[in-house]
């Protein structure tokens, strides 16, 4: 990107520091480590996001990561999650991998079939996660290979905030 190159007539010390574009973090699959990972990821991109975008990013990542902690590793009590975020011109590319059990295809389908959406008047205590993810992200994809789950999606961001 043009703005990343040293600009003529300016010494390197005066050049604006480029915004961070990549975040990569592996952590234990437990609720408190998820909390810490979310905070760290948010802090990394906060200056490039509107308040709404930051809220959406944290919510979507929390839903994905908590699903892995609860259902991917379940009662085994130990496992690792790897979270990668890459900022580009179209938004934020997110990929999450883990070694837990296979993600049931019904989970991904869940977000599509509106008739399965939790109905507010039945006072549901759960089942919101995949609908939130599906509603807020683009290009959601899932792949399993060699016992490893890979979930990837893009969070669209308003253009113009990246150098």
């Amino acid at each position: 990107m043009l703005a990343d190159r040293p600009q003529p007539g300016r010494s390197p010390t005066e050049a604006p520091r480029p915004e961070p574009k990549i975040f990569h973090h592996s952590f234990a699959a437990d609720p408190l480590s998820v909390r810490f990972a979310l905070r760290t990821a948010l802090a990394r991109f906060l200056r490039q996001l509107s308040q709404d975008e930051a809220g959406t990013l944290e919510l979507v990542l929390a839903e994905v990561l908590n699903n892995i902690v609860e259902h991917g590793y379940g009662d085994t009590g130990n496992g690792t999650i790897t979270l990668s975020l890459v900022r580009d011109h179209r938004g934020l590319s997110c990929s999450i991998s883990d070694d837990g059990v296979e993600l049931p295809h019904s989970c991904l389908d869940l977000g599509i079939d509106d008739s399965l959406r939790p109905a507010p008047d039945t006072l549901p205590e759960g089942g919101f996660g995949w609908f939130l993810i599906r509603d807020l992200v683009e290009e959601l994809g899932y792949h399993r290979e060699n016992g490893r789950n890979l979930l990837a999606f893009r969070l669209p961001l308003k253009p113009g905030s990246i150098s």
Binding site: G55, E63, N66, P124, F128
Partner: peptide, 16 residues
């Protein structure tokens, strides 16, 4: 400042 679907579910459970 932050609520996820587990927190939301807990608020609903409290109401019930």
């Amino acid at each position: 400042e932050f609520l996820d679907s587990s927190g939301l579910g807990a608020v609903v459970a409290v109401m019930k």
